[in-house]
């Protein structure tokens, strides 16, 4: 099967985050970027299905030049080639604008299956894959915890996570877009051989014009949402922070839990 996997490069949420001076987003200087967590699982699932069915994975990503590093990593773990939607006009898109651009890029080729992560760890709209499916006119499933191919790879039995520990099991006809939940598999690491091979693999680039789109249809211009500001949450009612070294703080905490909160 020929499989497309859409990945996003996001800031590492574990890193020390700073708000940019204009207050509208994070300061990206010195900020470490990684492949979005659920997208890594989508990539791994794509590679496994391609290996099982004798196919290949083409990886797509949208973003500035730094995104090439994420694409290179995907090539190093086994993707055959990559497409980089690289143009300043693509920046700042919401799920609708980004989904529109990715769908236009995917339509230039023909795929049996498109995989994405379920949600980005930065803006977290959680809808890009579904929007892609809408443009392609394919069924989609969001929050996928299991994929089994059926009917000679013309359908898939898909397990989807729901709330309160219940999974939905359904069958979708392929081609489809499956939006993968983190935890589905164990993503592989790149081997030295894979890293060397990746250097020779193609990363094609595409602009809005290449995709038959107007710059006003993509990125911030093509979006209905505008992020006005970001901020760390106010300290709510405010935790009492217990000071001192670990021992002093722990002792003070136990005293508070006994005498003030009365839960011990």
């Amino acid at each position: 099967m020929k499989i497309a996997v859409c990945i996003k490069q996001v800031p590492n949420t574990e890193a020390r985050l700073r708000v940019r001076r204009d207050g509208r987003w994070l300061e990206e200087e010195d900020l470490p970027f990684i492949i979005n967590e659920s997208d890594e699982y989508a990539l791994e699932e794509g590679l496994r299905i391609a290996e099982k069915t004798g196919g290949e994975v083409v990886v797509f990503s949208l973003g500035p030049d730094r995104v090439r590093e994420a694409l290179r990593k995907a090539l190093a773990v086994g993707a055959a080639r990559a497409v980089h939607l690289a143009d300043p006009a693509f920046a700042g898109g919401d799920a609708l604008a980004t989904g529109r651009a990715l769908a236009a890029a995917l339509k230039r080729d023909s795929f049996d299956l498109v995989l994405t992560g379920s949600q980005s760890d930065d803006v977290g709209y959680g809808g890009t894959g579904s929007v892609v499916a809408g443009h392609l006119g394919w069924p989609h499933v969001w929050l996928v915890m299991g994929v089994e191919l059926e009917e000679g790879n013309r359908a898939a039995k898909v397990t989807r996570e729901m709330e309160s520990g219940v999974n939905e099991v359904s069958r979708v006809q392929l081609p489809a877009v499956l939006e993968i939940q983190a935890g589905l598999n164990h993503p592989r690491y790149a081997s030295l051989k894979g890293i060397m091979a990746a250097k020779k693999k193609e990363i094609a680039t595409a602009t809005p014009a290449d995709l038959g789109l107007d710059a006003a249809q993509v990125g911030e211009a093509g979006s209905r949402l505008e992020i006005v500001s970001v901020a760390f949450p106010a300290s709510g009612k405010g935790a009492q922070i217990l000071q001192g070294d670990a021992k002093a703080a722990a002792t003070a905490l136990v005293e508070k839990l006994q005498k003030e909160a009365r839960v011990l």
Binding site: T13, L17, D122, G124, R224, L225, V228, V230, A231, F232
Partner: peptide, 19 residues
């Protein structure tokens, strides 16, 4: 002006709808 979590809830964004 709408509030929603970003960066896995580490930050809150204020968002405006346009168009």
């Amino acid at each position: 002006l709408w509030t929603r979590p970003v960066m896995s809830g580490k930050l809150q964004a204020k968002v405006r709808v346009k168009g």
